[in-house]
C-alpha cells in the first residue's frame, strides 16, 4: 500500500474514531465539556456553510449573521408567540432564513465582489434593526425563553431518565447531539453536492464564469441555490444556538464578532475552498481560544495576526498546506464519470 494512501486511511480512521467519541461525550463527559463542544460544533456548521458560499460559489458574504439572527428570532417567536416546541422552532428558523434569502439574493446578485460583500452586511444590519423593533420579543433589549421551555423540550425527559442527569444537563445533551448531527449532515451534504454534476459546475464557475456559461452551466441559478441552502443551514444553526443560550438580544443574535469574524477566521485558517478546512480551522480556533482566553483583547489581536499570516503564506489554509505537502486527500472532490459518459 502506498504511503500516502496509508496515511489517508489513518487520518480517516482517526476521524471516524473522533466522531464516535463525540457521540458519547454527553454520556461520559462533564456538562462544561458538552457546552464547550456545542459551541465548537455550531461554529463548525456556520463555517461549513460560509465555506460553501465563499470558498466554492465565490459569494463572499459578510452578512451571514443575518440568518443566524433570523433563525434565533424565529425560534423565539415560535416558542413565545405560538407556544410550540423549540425543536419545531429550529426548522422554522431555517425556513424563514431561506425565505428571507430570496429577496436578499435578488438584490445582492446584481452586485459582485466588494459591492456584493458590502450589500450583504448592510442588509444584515437592516434585518437586525427591524427585529430590534419587535416589541413582542423584547425590542432592543431582547427577551428570554419562558421558564422551563428547554426542560419541556421533546426528548429531554427521556434523556433525563435514561442518562440519570438533571433536566438542564439533559437539555444540553439534546442540543449537543443535534449540533453534532447538523455538523455531520452539513459536511456530508456538502461532500455529496460538490461531487455531483452541480458541484462540478460550481467549481467551474469558481474558475471562470464565462467559460462555465459556455459549457452550459447557469451560474446565477447554481449560486442562488447555494445562497438559499446555506441561508437555511445558517438559520437552523442560529435557532439551535439560542435554544442553549436561552436569551436573545439583537446584539447577540446578529453579533459581528461571533457569527462573522470568528466564522471567517476559522474558514480562512483551515482552508477556504477545501472541505476539511473548516474542521481544521475550528480545532485550531478552539485551542487558541482555550489558550488565550485569559488575555482579553490581546486574544482577538493574536487571532487577527494569525489570520493575516495564513492568508499571506498559505493561501489554501493549514489544510491546503498539509494536503499540498503530503498529497493526502481526506475528502476528495474528484468527479467520476457517470456510466453513460464511459460507454461507447
Amino acid at each position: 500500500m502506498p504511503e500516502t494512501l496509508f496515511r489517508t486511511m489513518m487520518i480517516r480512521g482517526f476521524g471516524l474514531l473522533a466522531v464516535l467519541m463525540l457521540f458519547v461525550v454527553p454520556v461520559i463527559g462533564s456538562r462544561a465539556m458538552v457546552q464547550d463542544l456545542f459551541g465548537v460544533l455550531t461554529l463548525l456548521v456556520l463555517a461549513l456553510n460560509w465555506n460553501l458560499l465563499a470558498g466554492f460559489a465565490g459569494l463572499v458574504s459578510v452578512g451571514q449573521q443575518a440568518f443566524v439572527g433570523l433563525g434565533a428570532y424565529t425560534m423565539f417567536a415560535c416558542v413565545i408567540l405560538l407556544d410550540v416546541d423549540p425543536l419545531w422552532g429550529i426548522l422554522a428558523g431555517g425556513a424563514v432564513a431561506m425565505i428571507v434569502a430570496v429577496p436578499v439574493a435578488i438584490f445582492t446578485f446584481r452586485l459582485s465582489g466588494a459591492y456584493f460583500a458590502i450589500a450583504t452586511w448592510v442588509l444584515a444590519e437592516i434585518v437586525r434593526l427591524v427585529l430590534a423593533q419587535w416589541k413582542a420579543l423584547g425590542g432592543g433589549t431582547g427577551t428570554s425563553l419562558p421558564k422551563g421551555t428547554t426542560k419541556d423540550m421533546w426528548g429531554v425527559q427521556w434523556l433525563k431518565d435514561t442518562l440519570d442527569v438533571s433536566s438542564s444537563a439533559a437539555s444540553d445533551a439534546l442540543t449537543y447531539w443535534l449540533a453534532l448531527v447538523l455538523a455531520l449532515g452539513t459536511l456530508a451534504a456538502a461532500y455529496v453536492f460538490l461531487r455531483s454534476k452541480a458541484g462540478l459546475g460550481l467549481q467551474a464557475i469558481r474558475d471562470n464564469v464565462g467559460a462555465a456559461r459556455s459549457v452550459g452551466v447557469d451560474p446565477t441559478r447554481l449560486k442562488a441555490w447555494i445562497f438559499l441552502l446555506t441561508a437555511a443551514g445558517t438559520g437552523v444553526c442560529g435557532a439551535l444556538l439560542f435554544i442553549q443560550i436561552t436569551r436573545v438580544t439583537p446584539e447577540a443574535a446578529f453579533s459581528v464578532v461571533d457569527w462573522k469574524a470568528f466564522v471567517i477566521f476559522i474558514t480562512v485558517i483551515g482552508g477556504v475552498g477545501t472541505l476539511p478546512g473548516p474542521i481544521v480551522g475550528v480545532i485550531v480556533f478552539y485551542i487558541l481560544q482555550r489558550t488565550l482566553a485569559d488575555y482579553g483583547t490581546i486574544y482577538l489581536i493574536v487571532l487577527g495576526l494569525i489570520g493575516i499570516a495564513v492568508m499571506l503564506f498559505a493561501h489554501r489554509g493549514l489544510w491546503g498546506l498539509f494536503a499540498d505537502k503530503t498529497g493526502i486527500e481526506l475528502l476528495p472532490l474528484r468527479h467520476l464519470p457517470p456510466r453513460s459518459a464511459h460507454s461507447s
Partner: peptide, 23 residues
C-alpha cells in the same frame, strides 16, 4: 480554450456534458 484550472482533464471533459447528457 478556457479550460478550468482546478479541474482534471477528465473533469474538464465531463463538464461538457453538464447541460446535455444522453446516449
Amino acid at each position: 480554450r478556457k479550460l478550468f484550472p482546478s479541474l482534471s482533464v477528465e473533469e474538464n471533459l465531463l463538464i461538457g456534458a453538464h447541460a446535455r447528457e444522453g446516449n
